[in-house]
Nucleic acid binder design. Structure first.
Lengths: 359, 359
DNA sequence: CTTGCTAATTGAAGCGCTTCATCTGGATTC
DNA sequence: GAATCCAGATGAAGCGCTTCAATTAGCAAG
């Protein structure tokens, strides 16, 4: 309770604590880090002194002396995308249970920032780094690994097998989405939007294609777009509704919820019924997916698990001397809502029998 | 280019660089930190050695020796709310221009996490902390300040004048929103949703009340809700549309875009026209505010400026010996879209003559 | 009362850097 | 050519902690 204002400016050090408690420096350190190695009496005295001085350990000194710190750094691509928010939460929860703090850095889809934050964590000698890289390049990964830093890739790995990674099965997600539309009886499918140079989007498209091929009697049209925003969806919806009736798609899947939201709203504005006339399904289960005019079916990647698993891989790499790198690929889940099922809109069991999670 | 794998495991230190470059330790340090104090020849040699060894400075050692680090910590309340995302971006941009890195920590609306991250930044002896506190308590602020840590409050300050803060004028935001509805000729206003114990929400309500009082011939009904999610909005909309025609509000303002989105969608689902029958305005200009069925009018707090200004206050506190604490209160902006203006929906100049920004 | 052992405690070495007082050597001046 | 300077370079002292070898205290057994 009692703690004194910084007299003399300097924050109290362990030395000060030791003096006040009448024990040696080493004992204070032990008392704070491995209390079981210290007599109850000393422990008592040390804690009292800590309290009285308002002592806060200096983590710079600690990690300098110990050779490494206990915080984990997470370099995020885009804090505005709820997938990454979920990843951060999952990582944070898991890190916390093992006594590690998680610090975030947001690269904001900027390659140079991404690299610079990698370096900052590297310089800070963090216990490890979780990294959701941009497509572009993984050179930063090699750089920090050369310095002995441990790093786990999340959400994208560019095919690397030489470090741990947690991925989402994008191809399968696209497959499930298309297959769901096909099972609803839709045959003229449209894959709406997305820049093809993104690995994830290409995969989702491939998955959709596979489902359509399997079905045999269906078609998949593909209209790419440059960005992933909702106006692209509106534009695409406007275009296809202008067509002859037999060329209007009856099922639309989009690699992003934003685009899907644009599609849905534009279709409705033009008098088409969703899902009766056109069923629409998005991707990502963004946190706003239920705030749309009609709640949106989508493919959910379990960001929380991705973050948590990534931490586990990292901890194994840290603690286990004969650690072997592993790449975990998590299956996404279908989440069915009104935009494909209609107002009855309650979730139905998905393929493998589990109930999809409600957001 | 050439850099060698960690032989011997140990990362190369400045000592190693000095040896290889054939200069002293001190010279290496100078070359790296204040190159102008060093001859061109030494600089050359040092940089070459750094390159060859793949040397990365140890920031723990640096901040231990220097007494403080150059990173700034930002403790965020809720990474899922785009206001905080904007604050983070603004802070990050501004910090970067002055050579400070910004590390984020997400308390996820959890008081204990919030306090623990405050401590982590405190222990790391960061240059300063930006803090968006929960209502609950500001005791962590006092704790870290006692240790000499500098801290700037963002978005909420609980009336404190003894530290720097950047706030948003919530009362004025509520006032503007209500006043806008009144200027559209609406007279039966409804303030929809929000837990009243939140300071910001109470303020917004007070502002709305003030506008209605000023108008004289209008009424403001208030229906609180426990949470800020869209289903609360749907519930409220469902309730009021069930009423006798002359008791249905013709203008609804909500302290959150989520609630407003629920209101809009439910009204439309029940056959009411927005904005012809009921004009609706939200609050926060969340990033999904344009992904709604009809784009949503809202009150925008300029998170980016809040973050940037907070960094500036912090830097002044760090650098300026006769710094004085200041509380900055930023005015929010009205952003007018279809949900109050109708399909013409283009932005009109706001009160002070500036054009509202499009999201 | 010894002896032997373990549990606690101690103090010093060192982690990798910054900084400051000190020293060096070449250019400048008279 | 001696005296004066000053940019540059140097090396040691510490920053606050962890850790380890060495020491001491505490206690049961003989």
């Amino acid at each position: 309770m009692t703690s004194q204002t910084a007299d003399g400016g300097r924050a109290p050090s362990m030395q000060d604590v030791a003096r006040l408690a009448g024990v040696s420096l080493g004992t204070v350190s032990h008392a704070l880090n491995k209390p079981e190695k210290v007599s109850a009496r000393s422990l008592q005295k040390v804690l009292a002194a800590v309290e009285q001085l308002g002592f806060v350990p200096n983590s710079a000194a600690r990690s300098l002396a110990a050779g490494s710190s206990s915080t984990v750094g997470l370099v995020l691509t885009d804090i505005d995308n709820s997938l990454f928010v979920d990843i951060a939460r999952g990582a944070e929860d898991e890190a916390r249970t093992s006594g590690h703090a998680l610090l975030l850095a947001n690269s904001d889809i900027d390659f140079k920032r991404q690299e610079s934050y990698l370096d900052i964590f590297d310089e800070a000698r963090v216990a490890g780094i979780l990294f959701t890289p941009l497509n572009a390049s993984l050179e930063g990964v090699d750089r920090v690994r050369r310095h002995g830093r441990r790093i786990v890739l999340v959400n994208y790995a560019g095919g690397r097998q030489d470090c741990c990674a947690v991925l989402s099965d994008e191809e399968y997600g696209g497959y499930m989405a298309a297959r769901h539309l096909l099972e609803l009886g839709r045959r003229r499918l449209l894959f709406a939007g997305g820049p093809e140079e993104f690995h994830a989007i290409k995969e989702r498209r491939n998955g959709a294609l596979r489902a359509v091929m399997e079905a045999g009697n269906a078609t998949l049209e593909i209209i790419p777009s440059r960005r992933l925003k909702s106006d692209e969806g509106r534009k695409i919806a406007a275009e296809v509704t202008g067509r002859a009736a037999d060329r209007v798609p009856d099922g639309i899947l989009s690699p992003s919820d934003r685009i899907a939201a644009g599609v849905i709203h534009e279709l409705m504005a033009r008098g088409l019924r969703v899902p009766e006339d056109v069923a629409v399904i998005g991707y990502d289960n963004n946190h706003f997916a239920t705030e749309v005019a009609i709640s949106m079916s989508t493919v959910a990647q379990d960001g929380h698990s991705m973050g948590a698993e990534a931490i586990n891989l990292l901890l194994d790499e840290i603690r286990n001397p004969d650690h072997e790198h592993r790449v975990l690929t998590l299956k996404p889940r279908l989440i069915l809502r009104e935009s494909t099922l209609g107002p009855s809109g309650r979730p139905v069991p998905e393929e493998d029998g589990r109930l999809p999670l409600e957001a």
